[in-house]
Design a binder for these strands. Structure first.
Lengths: 369, 369
DNA sequence: CGCATTACCTAATGCGCATTAACAAGCAAT
DNA sequence: ATTGCTTGTTAATGCGCATTAGGTAATGCG
């Protein structure tokens, strides 16, 4: 009961205007000062007069603008959103434990592009953090709800909760997922073209002369993994190489982990190149590198390695592996463009963005037999 | 005109309810289904019935909750905020160019504490990004305005715009600044006690036997710099050492930059220990290290170095310098506590938090003359 | 049995803004 | 003059929710 007294709003209740200086002025005050109606103020300030062909005389415009300026009027974003379903705010929600604002964070490069494009489109950004649990959940339906404060929302991460997303999509709330995603029907997304990029890497290896290539992937059926595997197999087939189930190894497969012995065995069978998928942890790549090292194999010399993605930040100073780079900033920017389209009512479907091939220094011709 | 048609809201205009499944249900729908009034729904869902001693029968409560659940009701945060001036959202605004590539993580540790404490207090977090310029600014008054979406807001950074902050404070919007700050009268803040911590470092150096100590600081009059200088000078005086203006060097001072020659000159004059202030870029510390290195001076042996703060993350693997650690997560948590108090209407003033002295490995006794 | 309590619930109102129907002029054409 | 059209402005309404001032039925008390 104390709490209600001095909340964020200057005058919560029906208390009459205070004696001294007015608190934050409303459009009504501006209107009074300018000698016009509140509706006119709204029209002028939102610039909708010209946009909607509802003209306002230059004189009136000036009066209103003067009044607003002298009173220091600023709009209430909550009220705008309530009344018009627009407040020029774009939400960004990521499903990692904490803030993706850390530079080392793998989502960071996306945000760079997101922010640029958002600014270019006249939107401000609002980041919602994923971890908090305490929130306002009256219905308990979930923390995702607060994104409705914004005009639309971007989602980052492999593990966005499908049901909550489905709900937003069903309500026709503008949502764009960064990363390909089939799950909620009708969800818009932007994704990197892992299939083509992976195919290209395999083709390059084949071009160097490799006849047996092995993919090391994690045991996780996210689209990002599936797509890479498909591109990998496509590439094998396209180059006339054997593409049986033996060409793919899942860490966690029955038969144990990725060990030096296993690598030696493969090499003995004729495998001359290894390809690892990239994930947010980079586990597959690390495991592969470790095993090859432990087996005492020289990398560009005896075996070739490639990474279907970019190396993790902490390995940035090692020689760049063959592979491809995901244009993360571009993806972020494209996501914003899609979202803006959704907000404007235009439909939007999934969009693929091409990756850039990276020759790197970890691949060469196979050793002579 | 196309735009208005399919905005974020399911049914923007006065169009009657659609034929098929209803879009996002309102309290009114819940009320209808439960056979009670909308007001009762609000009371039950907000839990305010028991809180305010306004009793609701268990039977009615159950009916309402059932209805809300079966309809999948979720509250509209914008409407909550508008009606009650509360939505359990805490804003966080930082004033560095939003996603700067090199600096960012210096605020990261704060956010860790902020997030934890916010969750503990039942708040969700919303991050506002600083750079965007395109936003809704009808009044042009500024991007800070959107923080009003939240119940209150935390501000991070040395260079928060004073006038915009003043405005929020004047409007009695709950604001807490992380970092000591005098500027807008009545602004609540939490800060680290740089004065005491810096004094302690100087005292430690004096205790090792140093008689002439020099402070290297940036040419920036933020309170964080001023406080460190004051503590530094206090420490000199307290230890009976000379504390004239010659004891402080500002990078950017007339007379040029921090060079190896200059360092040699100081050493020739009898300076045996150097102290650098910490800033978000770590520029002073970097410059000092570089100059000492270039001068060919051995660090713990010929000169002692200390850093008034923590080393930047990219230097984390070097030996830790003498200095102090700012308890950033604790500061963040304390800031949230203050902000929650402000939101609840309790007044809140500035709060200082103590830093932890760090002996480090860059300081030893001065060389024998 | 009349009146004051309590217990429980609802009608009404407004938060600040955007939108729309309606209206008031002004002016051209009939 | 009457009609029709364009231009400029306003009254009225509602977004979804919280809150306050009652209102009604059930109970207690003298």
């Amino acid at each position: 009961m104390v709490a209600k007294e001095a909340a964020g709003r200057a005058r919560p209740g029906r208390t009459p205007a205070p004696a001294g200086r007015r608190a934050r002025p409303r459009q009504a005050e501006v209107a009074r000062l300018a000698g016009v109606s509140q509706a006119t103020v709204s029209l002028v300030l939102s610039g909708r007069d010209i946009a909607t062909g509802r003209p306002i005389s230059a004189e009136t415009r000036a009066k209103v603008l003067d009044a607003a300026h002298s009173l220091g009027y600023v709009p209430d974003p909550a009220a705008s959103r309530l009344a018009a379903a627009r407040n020029n705010l774009l939400g960004v929600f990521s499903f990692t434990a904490t803030f993706p604002t850390d530079v080392r964070h793998s989502y960071y490069p996306f945000l760079v592009g997101v922010e640029q494009e958002a600014a270019a489109q006249g939107y401000d950004l609002v980041l919602f953090t994923g971890s908090s649990t305490g929130g306002a959940g009256a219905g308990g339906a979930g923390a995702l709800n607060r994104v409705r404060l914004a005009d639309g929302c971007l989602f980052l991460g492999r593990h966005a909760p499908a049901d909550e997303l489905r709900r937003l999509v069903a309500d026709d709330f503008p949502v764009v997922h960064v990363g390909r995603r089939d799950e909620p029907e009708g969800l818009a997304w932007v994704g990197a073209d892992y299939v083509s990029a992976s195919r290209e890497v395999v083709t390059a290896l084949a071009g160097l002369g490799h006849r047996r290539v092995l993919l090391v992937r994690e045991d996780d059926d996210a689209p990002a993994s599936t797509d890479r595997e498909r591109g990998f197999l496509d590439g094998l087939v396209g180059s006339g190489l054997p593409a049986g189930p033996g060409a793919v190894f899942r860490t966690g497969d029955p038969g144990g982990d990725l060990t030096a012995d296993r690598v030696r065995a493969w090499v003995a069978e004729g495998v001359t190149a290894f390809v690892a998928e990239e994930t947010d942890t980079g586990a597959a790549w690390r495991a592969l590198r470790a095993a090859v090292d432990a087996a005492g194999l020289d990398c560009p010399g005896q075996v070739s390695l490639a990474l279907l993605g970019s190396p993790p930040a902490d390995l940035a100073d090692e020689p760049a592996p063959m592979g491809f780079d995901i244009p993360r900033p571009a993806l972020g920017a494209e996501a914003v463009r899609l979202l803006a389209a959704r907000i404007a009512g235009r439909p939007a479907e999934g969009t693929l963005v091409a990756c850039a091939f990276r020759p790197g220094a970890t691949a060469g011709p196979p050793p002579a037999p």
